[in-house]
């Protein structure tokens, strides 16, 4: 266990250290403040939640918010489908699968886009411009849609 822990800690410290210079200074001020606040009140889950929320609202660029909205939309659509499946049964199973996996797939693709365009992760994606990430995203999504529509017959 010990080496594993060390490795994990090492990886984390690296990523945080690399991310701090990359992120915007005015932005990074706020997380540090909220993080200190949350660290103090970390025993209280409600505080953590509000902390996260505030952090998010203040700290997220416009386009990331756009992505998040889209992801939330996908989660709702997917959740509705899943709920319907539980309630009404999954009779045309392929339809359910393709419908549900379309949202799931779209969700992960969007999440990937979000991660790739997140400047905090720039260290991980050195050769990946945002335009390239977006093009990749469109490419992946189109494959996904093709498969889903094909599969639902």
């Amino acid at each position: 266990m010990a080496p594993k822990k060390n490795a994990a800690a090492g990886a984390n410290s690296q990523s945080t250290s690399s991310s701090t210079p990359a992120t915007n200074t005015p932005v990074s001020n706020k997380p540090s403040s909220t993080s200190t606040a949350s660290r103090n009140a970390s025993t209280n889950p409600q505080d953590i939640a509000t902390g996260i929320w505030e952090n998010y609202v203040n700290n997220t660029p416009q386009r990331v918010k756009l992505i998040d909205t889209f992801m939330l939309f996908l989660v709702i659509v997917g959740g509705l489908q899943f709920l319907y499946c539980i309630l009404a049964g999954n009779y045309p199973f392929n339809a359910f699968l393709s419908g549900f996996s379309a949202t799931v797939g779209q969700f992960v693709l969007t999440a990937s886009l979000r991660i790739q365009t997140n400047s905090a992760n720039a260290a991980d994606f050195k050769q990946l411009s945002h335009e390239r990430a977006f093009a990749d995203f469109v490419f992946g999504s189109m494959i996904l849609h093709f498969f889903c529509v094909n599969f639902i017959n």
Partner: peptide, 9 residues
């Protein structure tokens, strides 16, 4: 029965 999922897609 498949309509909800078609609309989902």
């Amino acid at each position: 029965a498949a309509w909800p999922w078609i609309s989902g897609i």
